[in-house]
Design a protein around this nucleic acid. Sequence first.
RNA 1: GGGCUGCUAGCUCAAUGGCAGAGCUGCGGACUUUUAAUCCGUAGGUUCAGGGUUCGAGUCCCUGGCGGCCCA
Length: 501
Amino acid sequence: MTTTSEAGQGQDDLPEQMRIRRAKRESLLEAGHEPYALTYPRTATLKQIREKYPDLPIDSATGDVVATTGRVMFVRNTGKLCFATLQDGDGTQLQAMLSLDKVGAERLEEWKRLVDLGDQVGITGEVISSKRGELSVLASDWSMTAKSLRPLPVAHKAMSEEARVRQRYVDLIMRPEARDMVRARATAVRSLRDSFHQRGFVEVETPMLQLIHGGAAARPFITHFNALDRDVYLRIAPELFLKRCLVGGIDKVFEINRNFRNEGLDSSHSPEFAMLEFYEAYSDYDRGGTLLRELIQEAAMAVAGSHVVTHADGTEFDLGGEWRSITVFGSLSEALGEEVTVETPYEQLVGFAQKIDLAVDPKWIPGKLAEELFEELVVPTLQQPTFVKDYPEDTSPLVRAHRSQRGLVEKFDLYVSGFELGTGYSELIDPVIQRDRFELQAKLAQKGDSEAMPLDEDYLRAMEYGMPPAGGVGMGIDRLLMALTGLGIRETIMFPLVRPE
RNA sequence: GGGCUGCUAGCUCAAUGGCAGAGCUGCGGACUUUUAAUCCGUAGGUUCAGGGUUCGAGUCCCUGGCGGCCCA
């Protein structure tokens, strides 16, 4: 939202409350007060004051004079004594008191006339407790540090979800849960990095702007690079570059960064999302899954202090211990009450689909149909953390064949609370098989499958130098926060893309 | 993509097709111990946009925009 269009309309077109606040800004200037201070000589934050005086007795004085700052969240004015609740960026609140005998008639009158809810102010005064026992700063002086020209929402009614997402800065002012999410996310990401560093992994940043997109089945964003006069892609996954790292000998490597997928925009899909991927030489999908579990459990410990996290609705969710492990076809057979394997004929799979009213897309290959059946019948039951193992080969072009079962690949998906949190492979490292799989994908792309991968010659060249056997794992950071907090993706991303107003 | 549904004051919400309202916020006043302060007074509107039906539309119809829920 630009202010130029509003300013261009002139003040007369602004809502009354915004006109009044602009007028108060002018009044401050006319009275010789800066409405937007260079700084304020703060000697203590609200939190530091609270921590220094946890148990001040009722109606007592400390003799301790502090200079502190905060946003005015509530005001309670009487004739000669004013109370204001100040709030700091971390959500700490503390009461400021302004009395006639301490600040004088003129400054008290200016406080009452010029300070609105939402203004940022500096208060200098003695730390005391009020007659009701409220820890307070009794002002000897005050000043405006930033005049707010827009009224805050009503504090006692929830903002609409749309308003919270579109104006997250206001949400962060008003709602502790919004502030907590930002800090929980930072804590979780830091925990992931700590966990990797403790295990000797190297963090890298691979290209987000790519000449060929690959590493996942998804539609890319396309942009134009003028210098080359050609279209380039925002990456859909870092996988193919991280494997080049393994070829080059970076044996334990991870990246935490953004991916971009040109797909839906709704409450569960964001076009840009943060992703963790890690690869370890001479590991496999089982060991990758074990490390993923440890990473998540250590993140839970960092954020919640326990492997049992408390979700936003108050329910407790246990991420501790070993996690259940099932297979795609084993669990599907159980759900259908009939034996289904990767060998089960396509027509029979279609029959199962019809039985449960699942519409079959004729473009689906048999493996895809089996996965759709699995997602319909089994995934909704996967609330507790569960590794789902051994997927059909034809839908996973970057995974190596199962060590003992034909037609399957060594891949797991990790499900938590009914959604997919992460995935892991025993990586395909045979460049000849890799080329065959890519060529199959290229054919699918020609047939119109917009999610199929193009052939990446440079990636194949890298593979031909020899990539060590490896396990690789990916996990959505936004989804990790969903699992830790029980909130939706639009809450875990601070500024999700929204349609223009 | 389909179905249902919402959009009204700064915020949260009312209003049988018949004078656009309330609470909080704001503004004016009273109050030196308040905690969503209280009390008295008062202002605030392109009812998402455009079109249509009607004597009359926030309300009914159509198109579009932005959300939400459900389904695929």
